[in-house]
Design a protein around this nucleic acid. Structure first.
Lengths: 160, 160
DNA sequence: TGTTTAGTTCGGTAATCACCGAACCAATAC
DNA sequence: GTATTGGTTCGGTGATTACCGAACTAAACA
């Protein structure tokens, strides 16, 4: 049984590998997530996902539930149809931004801790490399501001 | 044997956990890296690292070499002293920025692939959610620009 | 010439990860 | 009721990870 074009299969693998790291997902979860992103709005059934990924029912079930718990994937149903149709969450891009925001905020919090630690315990070192350290923190803050702006804009877009 | 203050120990653990994820390091490597960042310029000897981390010689050796291969840690020597003194690389912040830049560049490359795939194979979906997708890409490009600006500024600072 | 110092290398092991099959369950169909 | 559909749950298992100890090496010292 053919499931999708070789081009799509290649994309699923290529982006899948990348998603394993950036979203911290198991290989199968990353593949499923990519399939959802590359798929039309009407979603994929459980069995279609099994067919595309060639994975077992249990693995697909587990990883799919994990993707739903983290708001990456959602499902809808059709009247008179017992199947669930899985697709990428409508807000998956916004959720990704929020994840990035949490990460950057944690970065900034820890950088501040490091700076105040080094300022008190390693004064001479801190003063020597202080310029670079301050630049680094400014970079993080600018990234955070860009994130917040983008989330704001997305909210405006999706309210309409 | 006491190695360092409880405050420092706590920081090593707290930041260490964070570094495992963001720098993709084994727990011990992350701890060593944090120790280097929280330490004065004159560095730590191999034995001091063993004492602080309570790890084995072999583990410290392996992880330390790994940290040096990835430009996170370097060492210097003192005349008439066989020991190596390990410290955070002078350019570790800039290297972190470069790692981030590579990551963002890959993000952008893949986002473009996803967009062109969806534009051809899922036209209706892409047009419906296109606004958000474009916003997301603009966000990535702005992050990349901020990174490049910061790297440039750091180069100017460190040339002097 | 051994002996100590400062690490390195290698073989193993305990724990965790990613996945699987088989049994199970709840809802619908017959 | 019984069978089928659409998943879920549980008990593994093979592969990988993170670490360890013991043996080793190369340089410096006595």
């Amino acid at each position: 049984m053919e499931c999708c074009s070789p081009e799509k299969k290649k994309l699923i693998e290529e982006i899948g590998v990348h998603f394993e790291k950036v979203h911290n997902l198991a290989p199968l979860a990353a593949r499923i997530y990519v399939i959802m992103i590359l798929s039309p709005n009407d979603g994929h059934t459980f069995d279609e996902i099994i067919e595309i990924t060639q994975a077992s029912k249990s693995s697909v079930s587990t990883q799919l539930n994990l993707l739903m718990q983290t708001n990456k994937v959602e499902y809808f149903t059709k009247p008179g149809d017992r199947k669930r149709y899985f697709r990428a969450s409508k807000t998956y891009l916004k959720n990704t931004l929020k994840e990035n925001l949490d990460q950057i905020s944690e970065d900034i919090r820890l950088i501040e801790k490091i700076h105040s630690f080094n300022a008190t315990y390693n004064k001479e070192k801190f003063e020597k490399t202080g310029g670079v350290a301050i630049l680094f923190k400014e970079y993080l803050i600018a990234q955070k501001e860009n994130l917040e702006r983008t989330i704001e804009k997305m909210n405006e877009l999706t309210i309409n």
